[in-house]
Each structure stands twice: as structure tokens, then as C-alpha cells.
């Protein structure tokens, strides 16, 4: 109503203590306050220090994005929150598994497309393939679109993992 500025897409990297309920705490904050989560990736990154990293893509006006980050920062088990989109150059990668079921020329074409996307073939039967593809989210979406036009497909995507470029280490 009041905030008429443009909605932006931001990639946020959050380092949290790997304790029970920490993911529920983070996503509950998003659902409770009506923020969006476009994708979310989480895994332990340091077993000794009990640290997990959450990579998260969200959308909102600049005021909402600022709120999201401050709300995250004030959680007790959150050690650091970096807005990679604001911070500057960073790399984002996503991995997808794509199963395609087809036959004939379309099967040959699927292999050709997979090759041009540098996808690896993980499984193969006479009617199907499973490809593994990594890259930016847009590259993966393009790959999935192409596969979808060549047969019946099933998709599993990991969501984005991201990190800022350069020699700086978070935490």
C-alpha cells in the first residue's frame, strides 16, 4: 500500500547453528511475516563447530528485503547474514536431476541437448535417461524447458548455493 517501490530478487546466505528447529525458525519467520521464499538450500558445513549454511532466494521491495535481513540477524542461532546481491560479485550454482522418458528421434535429440548443456548421464534405460545438470538457475530452467518438449519429464532441483567472489571468508 505505502511502499510502491519495485520488487527485487535477492540471494541471501545465512550461517546458522545446526541445532534442532533452526530451519523451522528461519522459514517460520518468512511464512509468519508474509515474506517470499523462491528457493532454499540448507546443509551442514562444519560438523565440529555445528554450523549450517542456508542459501535462500527471496523477492520483495528494498524495505522488505532490509526487514528480512534484520529479522534473520536477530535470531539467536543465526551467526551471519549476507545479502550477496547487494554485496557485489558472487557465484550462484544449482544442480538438477532430470529424468526424461521418450523414444526415437526425440531420444537422440535429448542426448544432443544434454551434451550441449554439459549434462551428465547418470542412468539410462531403453525408454529413459536421468541427466545431471549444474549451472545458474536460468540455465537449468532453459534445460528443463527443452527436455519438457522432448518427452515426459520428472525434475529434482537442489535450489541455489551461492558465495561471494574474492578472498573474503564468511565467519
Amino acid at each position: 500500500m505505502f511502499d510502491k517501490s519495485k520488487v527485487e530478487r535477492h540471494t541471501i546466505s545465512i550461517l546458522v547453528e545446526n541445532e534442532p528447529g533452526v530451519l523451522a525458525r528461519v522459514i517460520g519467520l518468512f511464512s509468519g511475516r508474509g515474506y517470499n521464499i523462491e528457493c532454499l538450500t540448507v546443509s551442514e558445513v562444519d560438523a565440529h563447530k555445528k554450523l549450517s549454511r542456508i542459501s535462500l532466494v527471496t523477492t520483495g521491495t528494498p524495505m522488505v528485503i532490509e526487514q528480512i535481513e534484520e529479522q534473520l540477524r536477530r535470531q539467536v542461532p543465526v551467526y551471519s547474514v549476507q545479502d550477496l546481491t547487494v554485496k557485489g560479485p558472487h557465484v550462484e550454482r544449482e544442480l538438477a536431476l532430470v529424468k526424461i522418458v521418450n523414444s526415437g528421434d526425440k531420444r537422440v535429440e535429448a542426448l544432443r541437448v544434454a551434451d550441449s548443456f554439459r549434462a551428465r548421464t547418470l542412468d539410462s534405460t531403453l525408454e529413459s535417461f536421468i541427466f545431471e545438470v549444474t549451472g545458474s538457475s536460468s540455465k537449468i530452467s532453459a534445460f528443463i524447458d527443452l527436455m519438457g518438449s522432448l518427452g515426459a519429464i520428472e525434475i529434482a532441483r537442489t535450489g541455489v548455493s551461492a558465495m561471494s567472489r574474492g578472498s573474503e571468508i564468511d565467519y
Binding site: P20, G21, A24, R25, G28, L29, G32, Q75, V76
Partner: peptide
């Protein structure tokens, strides 16, 4: 309890 009270507390613990 820890699930129900998570959004209405500053922090909560389940002691294991």
C-alpha cells in the same frame, strides 16, 4: 511446545 512457542518467543529450547 517448542514448535508452538517458536513464533511467540524470542528464543526457545528443548532440553535433550
Amino acid at each position: 511446545t517448542s514448535g508452538i512457542t517458536r513464533p511467540c518467543t524470542k528464543y526457545n529450547y528443548l532440553i535433550k
